[in-house]
Design a protein around this nucleic acid. Structure first.
Length: 593
RNA sequence: GGGGGUGUAGCUCAGUUUGGUUAGAGCGAUCGCCUGUCACGCGAUAGGUCGCGGGUUCGAGUCCCGUCACUCCCGCCA
């Protein structure tokens, strides 16, 4: 028999009435009646109410024992009377009458309460993460994460994927995010990089003939944090398949996502078949390549309206003449919304750093008019045209933003979220997945004005092999795709370019010589020259999937031991300084400021 | 690198707008009372560098300047 327990704290029922049991766990809560003490004992599995009366020799000691002390109790299960049953807990039908107890782990005065739904400051939670993790909600989130990962493993193996581990100490890559670097002792002056993703390895696995691979892969990127982005490290379901086209990858991942989200959430799927939206359409209709499709609002281009002579909105007209664009959001039947609604949007836009958002509402019977601060600038004819473009009717309103295209997109895409939220248009009880496809292969870097890869340099371009025309690189699309759910980018993937000749050509457009490519992507380019199968894959973000399932807005709520926004682990005190000996051994010197 | 928010007891917060007696509450801690609670109840006690530094003032938690920490966002994240 186990020394510490015969049962866990979540399993006793009235069937166990009368049996002698041993339970171990944390003291979750005490209710002291002076001559009668109730004590909730908690473990991973649940809570059991225990009680002890004054006559018991252990009464005084138990009364004085701190919350969160770990104790072992010996007792008898007793069925509760009808009126004392607690329906909130699994073991609410019974209680355990304590005969004796023993302290297994003492507890000092708590720096933060464990038994409470109160929220508290992040730095305290992170410093005492082991206490924080005892709390119900986050404890359940972490268990959910474990279950999701196990489920993914099972399903991937069923689908014929092999699970492999790839190196953590690898080489720095010139594309992408900042690398985390690790100095090499045996090769002084040289550094390993932690993988931003196992990108090259997974392709090499395909070249090695393993057909299908997956991994719950740690990825390391030295970039600043966001609510949905841990600083430093995160996990991806990294997968890659041989002899496949885009649709084959879609079929596998779409099925997998549906299985996961249906198993672990009660929310409804807005689309059983994920809609495919081209990158271009996504930017046009939603202003972003990660649209929240629960939100019905769409964006229209009204730039041409401000080239008309019968429109007198001079500020916008002037901007349009100098190359700015105008984008608009139409809201249905908002004519009776109070002024505060419209001003609220306008002020919000100012808070975002824009000059605001102009707005008006269509009204009138025979002659169409625009009501609102800028309504007077529009002729009836121009309003008709706007109604045509935006598919608006009388009583609808238009919100306008005018700026350089990039700036407009930034504002109008978040305005879409803001307006939908204010109008309560988003059903929070649904998941809306979609694929974003046909990403451009190249883009113009805004700072350097040079052509660079817009996504992954290893993606296959959508060009006819027989007549490769690279003269207009910005028009080349790639077999590059993203999954988006509820406005969150869950993953991106691609069919890879497995043809070395084509790869050299594409890299040359981005300014890399053959020698550069040979040097920087040595392993890859070499492998592709020795018989590489056509292949492709994707890498859904595990943390974000669990976030969506757990209904959390912050990635730390689904991460066991997260770092804070400044990439510090307050519990383990990382990063920390290292000794002079360690530095010496690595051949490093710290430059003082 | 930039912008916003927050910082008062171990924890959660009120007080700051409009400067003015000894800075309050709930939870937790300690002590006492209480035999059916499940956020048990009742009474008492302890607990404060109002993030830190400087300034204005007869007087600063409150106003001004600077700074630090946490957080959200922009940049960044192929």
């Amino acid at each position: 028999m186990n020394k510490y327990r015969t049962h866990n704290c979540g399993e006793l029922t009235k069937k166990d009435n009368g049996s002698n049991v041993i339970l171990s766990g944390w003291i979750n809560k005490k209710r002291d009646h002076g001559n009668l003490l109730f004590l909730d004992l908690r473990d991973n599995f649940g809570i059991t109410q225990c009680l002890v009366e004054k006559e018991n020799e252990f009464f005084k000691n138990l009364e004085k024992t701190q919350l969160e002390t770990v104790i072992k109790i010996n007792g008898v299960v007793a069925k509760r009377t009808e009126d004392t049953v607690n329906k909130e807990i699994q073991t609410g039908e019974i209680e355990v009458k304590i005969k004796s107890f023993e302290i297994l782990g003492t507890c000092k005065e708590l720096p933060m309460p464990v038994f409470t739904d109160q929220e508290y400051a992040e730095d305290i939670r992170l410093k005492y993460r082991f206490l924080d993790l005892r709390r119900k909600k986050i404890h359940e989130n972490i268990v959910l994460r474990s279950k999701v990962i196990s489920f993914i493993r099972e399903e991937m193996i069923k689908l014929g994927f092999l699970e492999f581990q790839t190196p953590i100490l690898t080489s720095s890559s010139p594309e992408g995010a900042r690398d985390f670097l690790v100095p090499s002792r045996l090769n002084k002056g040289k550094f390993y990089a932690l993988p931003q993703a196992p990108q090259q390895f997974k392709q090499l696995i395909m070249v090695s003939g393993f057909d299908k691979y997956f991994q719950i892969a740690p990825c390391f990127r030295d970039e600043d944090a966001r609510a949905d982005r841990s600083p430093g490290e995160f996990y991806q379901l990294d997968l890659e398949m041989s002899f496949v086209e885009q649709e084959d990858v879609f079929n596998v991942v779409e099925k997998l996502m549906l299985l996961i989200f249906k198993k672990f959430s009660n929310k409804k799927m807005l689309f059983e078949k994920f809609p495919k939206i081209t990158y271009e359409d996504a930017l046009r209709k939603y202003g972003t390549d990660k649209p929240d499709l629960r939100n019905p609002l769409e964006i229209s281009d009204l730039t041409s309206i401000f080239e008309r002579d019968d429109v007198k909105f001079e500020i916008f007209k002037k901007l349009v003449k100098s190359g700015s664009v105008v984008r608009a959001i139409k809201t249905d039947n908002t004519k009776d919304k109070p002024r505060s609604f419209f001003d609220g949007i306008n002020n919000w836009a100012k808070d975002q750093g824009a000059s605001g958002m102009a707005y008006f509402t269509f009204e009138g019977d025979n002659e169409i008019k625009a009501k609102g601060p800028v309504g007077k600038f529009f002729s009836s004819e121009s309003l008709k045209e706007i109604m045509k473009i935006t598919d608006a009717k009388i009583g609808d309103s238009i919100f306008l933003s005018c700026n350089k295209e990039n700036e407009v997109l930034k504002l109008i895409s978040s305005a879409r979220d803001k307006i939908a939220k204010d109008l309560n248009l988003v059903n929070e009880e649904t998941f809306a997945f979609c694929w974003i496809v046909d990403y451009p292969m190249f883009e113009v870097d805004e700072t350097t004005k040079k052509i660079s890869f817009s996504h992954n340099p290893f993606s296959m371009p959508q060009i006819d092999e027989k007549e490769i025309d690279l003269s207009k690189p910005l028009e080349i699309k790639a077999y590059q795709y993203d999954i988006v759910c509820n406005g969150i980018e869950l993953s991106s993937g691609a069919i890879r370019n497995h043809k070395p000749d084509l790869m050299y050509k594409l890299f040359s457009i981005a300014g890399y010589s053959k020698e550069d490519v040979d040097k920087k992507f040595k392993g890859m380019i070499n492998a592709l020259s020795f018989g590489a199968p056509p292949h492709g894959g994707i890498a859904p973000g595990i943390d974000r999937i669990v976030m969506l399932l757990a209904n959390e807005k912050n990635i730390r709520e689904v991460t066991l031991f997260p770092m804070n926004q400044n990439a510090q682990d307050l519990m383990m005190n990382a990063p920390s300084e290292i000794s002079d000996d360690q530095l010496k051994e690595l051949g490093l010197q710290i430059k003082k400021k």
